[in-house]
C-alpha cells in the first residue's frame, strides 16, 4: 500500500503540485475573500492534472502487472487524494489564522476562516470524494464525468452553506461569532467535519473497490 502511494507521488504527481497548497493557501491572505474557493482549486487543478497523468502514462496497465492487489490499488489512490486534501486544508488553515491576525478589523461578508469554516471544508471534500472516487473506478481510467459531477456537488454544497450562512441569522451567529459559545460550536463542527470526511472517504473506498474488481484492464 505504502509503495503504491509512493509510486503515485514519485511518478505521477508533478513535484510542483506539492507547492500548490502553499500557493493556494497564500490566497487566504486576501482579506474578507470567499475562502471556499481556496480548497476548490485543488479539485479544479490538481485532481484533473494528476488523473490525466495516470491515464496518459498507462498507470492502470503499469500497476496491474505488478504483484499488488486490486483492493490496495484503490486504497492507495484514495489515500493519495485524501492526503492531498488534508494537506490543502491544513496549510490553508495556517494561512487563514495568519490572515485573521493580520486584519483583525475586517468585516467578513463570506465565512471567516475559523474552525467552523474548516469543518465545512472537510464536509465539502467528503462529498467530493464520495462522488468522484466510486464514479472514477467504474472504468479506473476515464475521470471527466466523475470530476464534473463531484466538483458540481462540492461547489453546490459550498454555495448553499455560504448562502444560508448569510441569510439565516442563527447560522450566521454560529459561523461568524467570536464568543466562547460560538467557538465551542465551531470546534464541534470541525470535529464533525473531520469525522464525516473520514467516514465518506472510507465508504468511497469500499464502493470503488467493489466497482474496480469488475473492471477489465
Amino acid at each position: 500500500m505504502y509503495n503504491l502511494v509512493m509510486k503515485d507521488v514519485r511518478l505521477a504527481v508533478p513535484p510542483f503540485f506539492f507547492l500548490f497548497p502553499l500557493l493556494f493557501g497564500a490566497l487566504m491572505l486576501i482579506p474578507g475573500w470567499i475562502y471556499f474557493v481556496v480548497p476548490l482549486y485543488f479539485c479544479w487543478i490538481t485532481i484533473p492534472n494528476v488523473f490525466n497523468q495516470f491515464k496518459a502514462q498507462n498507470d492502470l496497465m503499469f500497476t496491474s502487472v505488478m504483484p499488488v492487489a486490486k483492493r490496495d490499488m484503490v486504497k492507495a489512490r484514495v489515500t493519495l487524494v485524501a492526503g492531498f486534501e488534508l494537506l490543502h486544508i491544513v496549510i490553508a488553515a495556517i494561512f487563514g489564522s495568519i490572515s485573521m491576525s493580520l486584519y483583525p478589523n475586517v468585516t467578513y461578508y463570506f465565512f471567516p476562516p475559523n474552525m467552523g469554516f474548516w469543518g465545512l471544508n472537510f464536509v465539502m471534500f467528503a462529498i467530493f470524494n464520495l462522488i468522484f472516487i466510486p464514479m472514477f473506478y467504474k472504468t479506473a481510467y476515464k475521470f471527466g464525468w466523475a470530476l464534473l459531477a463531484a466538483v458540481t456537488a462540492a461547489m453546490l454544497f459550498a454555495g448553499i452553506t455560504q448562502w444560508i450562512g448569510i441569510q439565516s441569522p442563527v447560522v450566521n451567529e454560529i459561523f461568524y461569532g467570536t464568543g466562547a459559545q460560538q467557538v465551542r460550536l465551531q470546534a464541534f463542527i470541525l470535529i464533525s467535519g473531520i469525522v464525516i470526511f473520514s467516514a465518506f472517504s472510507v465508504i468511497a473506498n469500499r464502493l470503488a473497490v467493489k466497482r474496480f474488481l469488475q473492471v477489465e484492464v
Binding site: 511518478l11 502514462q57 498507462n58 496497465m61 503499469f62
Partner: peptide, 8 residues
C-alpha cells in the same frame, strides 16, 4: 509499443 511513465 506501450509506454509507462515516459517522462521519468
Amino acid at each position: 509499443g506501450v509506454d509507462f511513465y515516459t517522462r521519468s
